[in-house]
Structures are given as C-alpha cells and as structure tokens.
Design a protein around this nucleic acid. Structure first.
Lengths: 133, 133
DNA sequence: TATTGTTATACTCTATAACTATA
DNA sequence: TATAGTTATAGAGTATAACAATA
C-alpha cells in the first residue's frame, strides 16, 4: 500500500530535479506542458486541467508572465475572460523541455522490457480507475 | 508515461481528503505515521525518513507540538540533539488514524482482485527500482 | 573543529472569501 | 444576477545559509 507512494516519490524526485534545473516549479512546468501544442486556454480551463483553484492559478501565471513564458490575451468578443498563451520564449521552452524531459525519463524507462512497461501501464490504469471518483 | 503521475494524483487526492479531514497536512501526517510504533527519533533521522530538510522539519514539528501530538525529549547523554516522540494524544491519533486511513483506502483496493493487487505491487516495485538512484 | 538543530530569509503554493468588471 | 478572474488574507511547506550550542 505504501508502494504507490514510494514509487511515485522516487519518480517524482527524479523528475523534480530536472524541472528545478530549468528554473521552474512543478506547477509552472505543469502549466507550460498543458499549454504546449494548444492555441491557449482560459484561466478556468487551465485551472481545471492543472487541478489548482483559480486564485492559485493567478499567482502561477503571474510568475510565468514575469519570466516571459506566457501572456494573457484578451479575446475581442468577451472581455470578461482571456486566453493564456505561450509566448515565443514559452514555445521554445516547451519544445526544448518536453523532449528533454521525456528523454530524461526515457533513460530510466528503457531499463524495462516492453512487456514490463505494458504490465506497468495496465497496473497503473487499474489503480487510476479505482481511485478516481 | 503520464500514467504514474495521474494514478498517483487520483490516489493522492483521495488520501489527501482524509488527511485534511483530520486537521493535518500531508507532511504532518507523514511524521505521525513515521513516529508511530517507535520510541522516538532524532530530528536528523526523521528528516531523512520523511525526505524534508532539517530546517523544514523544525517548522513541521513546531506545529505538531502546538497541537500536542508530539514533544521534544532531551536525552541525558547528548544534549546537542533530542528525540521527537509522540505524546499520549499523538499515540491516540496514530492508533486511530492509521487503521482508519488504511480502511479508507482499503475500500478502494478491495475493488481489485488479489491477482490484480499482486501485479500492481510488482509493477510498482519495478518502477521504484528503476527510479531510485 | 564537527555535529545537531534553530533561525532568518525569501519564495511558492495553497484555499477561501471578498471584490471588480463584464455579460 | 451570474460569470471570469483578481486580490486580500493567512498559513504551510520549501531550500539555503548563517547561527548557537554542544561534543
């Protein structure tokens, strides 16, 4: 029962190291990755996908905006909301970090056989189903 | 590759709800559970087991001490350090929350067959091995 | 001098609730 | 009135580095 927590902890601290080396926090990284390959997202949407409340998201977006990875774009039709969009630097970062991050993790996943990966996938999916409400 | 993160997220938010309903945070819960069934632990040890730095741990222990779940005991031989020990209330909490927590999770795990649990366990162990340095 | 733990500093995330502006 | 997002508030955790006390 502890297994899930400890496995994740091992995985997480591994990924975390990489994320921090890029000068990002985990929630910030999450936002960048979520915005990648989209044409932007409303705060609302983004908050749902990244599982933070809107108030929290405001701060995260503020900090990403300061770093010029993201900007708020006001759509002409509804000035009550706006789209959060990756800036040019944000795009570059995404295109850089995403493969790098995958590569970084891949090096570890490659130590497993395709069959092992397959069974791990199945196992995790079951866990996911059981714990999602 | 996202599976681990999303499974854990589902699991975590489920467990988190329970922990918060007890008026604890996750790191605080972690400390209580780590101290349970031991005769105390040095800050050092405790920091290692719970994977936080000593400075951070000081704050967590302070808050648990305020809630009277934990106390600092000075060993006679070495006054440079001390043992963190569960108080009587802490023991009660531990004895109450731990089975409760297991029960809370068990309700979900029971939806899986023993074979499924077995294969999940195996899968997680493999992941753990691959990602621990 | 080395070790144990605290304190200072500074930042990020967190939720909740009150608020502003638009629809 | 309802919705989208910000702001205010208050707290917790986080790392790092400087510090005090003990060994």
């Amino acid at each position: 029962m502890r297994s899930l927590a400890t496995s994740y902890q091992a995985f997480y601290s591994h990924a975390d190291k990489h994320i921090r080396s890029l000068g990002l926090t985990v929630p910030q990284f999450d936002v960048i990755v979520t915005l990648g390959n989209t044409d932007g997202m409303l705060m609302n949407e983004l908050a749902q996908k990244t599982l933070v409340t809107k108030g929290t998201l405001t701060g995260i977006i503020d900090r990403l905006e300061q770093k010029d990875y993201v900007r708020r774009e006001i759509p002409p039709n509804n000035r009550r909301c706006f789209r959060v969009v990756l800036t040019a630097s944000g795009e570059v970062l995404f295109k850089q970090i995403f493969p790098e991050h995958i590569e970084y993790l891949k090096e570890r996943f490659d130590r497993l056989s395709p069959e092992e990966l397959e069974s791990i996938q199945t196992a995790l999916d079951k866990l996911h189903n059981v714990f999602s409400d």
